[in-house]
Amino acid sequence: MNLPFLVQQTMFFAIPLMVVALGGMFSEQSGVINIGLEGIMIFSTFMGILVLNIFVGIIPAQFLFILALLVAGIAGMIFSSLHAYASVYQKANQVISGTALNMFAPAFFNFTMRNQTGSNQLYFLNQYRIPKVAILGDIPVIGPLFFTNTYISTYIGLVILAIAVFVFYKTRFGLRLRACGEHPQAADAAGINVYRMRTYGVLISGLLAGMGGLILTIPTTTAFGGSVAGYGFLALAVLIFGQWKPSRIVFAAFFFGTMKTIAATYTSIPILVGLGIPGYLFKSVPYLTTILVLAFTSKKSVAPKALGEPYDKGKR
């Protein structure tokens, strides 16, 4: 068993889930369901990889990756503004407009790719891996675990976590955002512009889902096929599992990431092989354990009170 390898794998699964789920948190805490995370991830990953491919060889790899992450985030924001407009200003059914995003993104990717290249695989150069971080990689134990064979996106993900926690708990903006998801009428009476706060919530979810798509894709493959393998939906599950709170979302994402790593690499763990469980069933472990944990912890689970309800100033 190779512990550093397992930790690295867990990071590749858990960090993007965490980032996207944190994005979803901002949207849902403001009162808007965002089921379109999957579509936002796909759309933004497409844009991010286009940037990678345009500037490859011109800009140094790590800077390019950061640039692509920013572009993916902005693309996600722009794409999610469609959802914000429909669900906040048009008081549309939030599930419907989110579903539209989920349907549009892969269709748009495939249509554009087939039309331009005839194939639906978007290849990119595998040059973003950091074999070993200078100095930090030489620290015993911690070095090999967290600072070798890594991607800059992992650390960016952790920075995003820190910023998200700060904004969510320690700023006026975070408090107002939560008020809009909990009791928009009261928030409005207190002088908060509910529509604007909800728009911000959705846009932040677009930003983070956009970055999350690229954070997921770059370390795990060398060709993007217009799919993020259901990670947008899994992030939604992590968000609910995490009860819409940052600390629990982190726990949920890493719990799921660890289980996923075990399921993917169980053949290298002798104890698990000894159990004699067929491989097809082993792949279910992360999903089943999540359900099991939820069955024992959900009794008191509470979603933001006004989640999914369009806010109408005129309605009492």
Binding site: G230, F233, L234, L236, A237, I240, F241, Y287, L288, T290, I291, L294, A295, F296, S298, K299, K300, S301, A303
Partner: peptide, 11 residues
């Protein structure tokens, strides 16, 4: 068990 049906059905 009050588990959200969205999450269980995704899983």
């Amino acid at each position: 068990r009050n588990v959200n049906e969205v999450i269980t059905s995704i899983m």
